[in-house]
Design a protein around this nucleic acid. Sequence first.
DNA 1: CTTAAACATGACGTTAACGTAACGTTTTAG
DNA 2: CTAAAACGTTACGTTAACGTCATGTTTAAG
Lengths: 126, 126
Amino acid sequence: MSEWMRIGELAGRAGVTLRTIRHYERLGLLPKGEREGNGQHYYPEASIARLEKIDQLKRLGLTLEEVSGVIDLYFSDPSRRSAKRKVLSILRQHLSQTDEKITALTKFRSDLQAHIDRFDQWLNDS
Amino acid sequence: MSEWMRIGELAGRAGVTLRTIRHYERLGLLPKGEREGNGQHYYPEASIARLEKIDQLKRLGLTLEEVSGVIDLYFSDPSRRSAKRKVLSILRQHLSQTDEKITALTKFRSDLQAHIDRFDQWLNDS
DNA sequence: CTTAAACATGACGTTAACGTAACGTTTTAG
DNA sequence: CTAAAACGTTACGTTAACGTCATGTTTAAG
């Protein structure tokens, strides 16, 4: 509906608390937006997507500090070639880190499976 | 060499600090072992494997409390059928949780890849 | 216009997983 | 035997990511 929303609506639609939003603002994770002299903050729709991306990165195990180091890469639209290259290299680092995590988890999965098989065997033997 | 080691050696061989070991002891994650009246603690080789397993579970994102809830499953040798079944069901829960994590990470990976491809395209266009 | 709901700001509280300092024994190298 | 290294115990400190007041202002409903 409206172009701009206040913090309460943003929190509700993004599924976070007011405190979280203010926390992220202080960490520079989320841009603010004051309006007129009233003191209240108004946010654009884009803030929702940003909060959701932050949550996604968090669930992947990144700390807020790490998130703040890369969050802009997902929303910025760098025009200079050098900026593009930089973004690309960081994204590639992320990719390989992700691959490592997946590998570790996969190994853990197979360990688990082995354990389960062993117990199953035992159960049938006894 | 020796059957029993003191805390310093255990820490060194397991790659953790003394503080960590004591912390885990208080949480019940690692069994103690006093000896004679001298007050010092002596640990068996098995403690190393236990610390390593704890570390592995931690790296998978489990909290110490969660770890303490399952760590025994990896070392106990339940003799009763009912115990075996219980262990099995918990291990299976772990397996499905692990699968979920892998799925989430895989999706993230493909998102990342898409991002990278888009940037690559851009770079070639410009 | 009045009052409750929403918002702003500041500050103290909380949990997890140890770090680090302080201080007194025990073990060990020389 | 003596000094240094290792150990035990207690207790306060630290970081992350917010939660939870407390208090004052702004907005919105009736």
